[in-house]
Design a protein around this nucleic acid. Structure first.
Lengths: 151, 151
DNA sequence: TCCAATTGATGGCATATGCCACTATTAATT
DNA sequence: AATTAATAGTGGCATATGCCATCAATTGGA
């Protein structure tokens, strides 16, 4: 591989974040793959479990994700029987999401692999630096940028 | 919008980067949209122009993107006449990519909007902080993680 | 109580990305 | 030179995300 063309550092914050996301995706996915799900799906299952039977809107909001996009990414997980939705008793528009038994098991399985990836990454970049990076990214995620994403 | 569920800070570096990427995507896209292309496409056009008639492999490598993925994302831009590929004279396996006149114009148009987004974002988070964030992300992108992405 | 406005999700269409299988070329070996 | 290995892309299939148009329920008035 041409080590040269590599550091095409961009001034664009978006491009830079995406590039890092692709790198991390390849890394985490490689390690989590044996579980049979993608790292993104593992993250989604985790979010659902951590939120305790959340509504779709709550998940989307927490992940700063478009509601319809969430619905789409949830489909393969529903198809494979890892998650299920139930209509809220008080408001039939609302659908609550939760993991099935199978989903709980799959998440636990994937988490073990995730730990390996997370640990290996932090061994390379440093736990502190990784923590600071996440903090900076969370700040970006939380900033009020006036228009978009405010809904 | 429920301001509460928002700070569902995750310990996962990958999930955190993706969440920030979605946030930035919504932001940059909203502002770049009037140009008719997505912020991701603007970034790709920029990368091509900045690389001076690069091969697909060079672009993919610089962007840490799968070669076939690059081919896919390049299609709509080729279809719309913004980029074109030419077979390398010395090695017919290689395809060099470059912007068309139309592509140059579209990029210039999008860049004007990009500047607005970039500026607005940095007005909120601070230019220094943004620079440090990009540096940290570039470091992640450049780290040798043993297996994957090394090819 | 009936209708308009609001809220929560779904479905269709489009781009973004990846992996794998396969084709086309070129480089290496014997 | 013929065969084999390595390189550069393409095409198919699948997930990740977004926007917009709709449909379903609820909520707010008049």
């Amino acid at each position: 591989m041409p080590k040269d063309a590599f550091f095409a550092t961009s001034a664009c914050n978006y491009a830079t974040v995406r590039r890092a996301a692709r790198k991390l995706g390849q890394f985490y996915d490689d390690i989590v793959a044996p579980s049979g799900i993608k790292a993104t799906q593992q993250g989604l299952l985790y979010q659902i479990k951590a939120s305790g039977e959340p509504t779709m809107g709550e998940i989307a909001s927490a992940m700063i994700m478009d509601l319809s996009a969430l619905g789409h990414t949830l489909k393969p997980l529903m198809r494979d029987g890892y998650v299920e939705t139930i209509t809220d008793k008080n408001d039939r528009r609302i659908r609550r999401v939760r993991l099935t038994k199978s989903g709980e098991k799959k998440l636990a399985e994937a988490m073990e692999l995730w730990k390996v990836a997370q640990q290996r990454l932090e061994d390379r970049v440093g736990t502190d630096k990784a923590a600071r990076l996440r903090a900076a990214l969370d700040e970006i995620a939380g900033v009020d940028l006036g228009d978009s994403a405010a809904s």
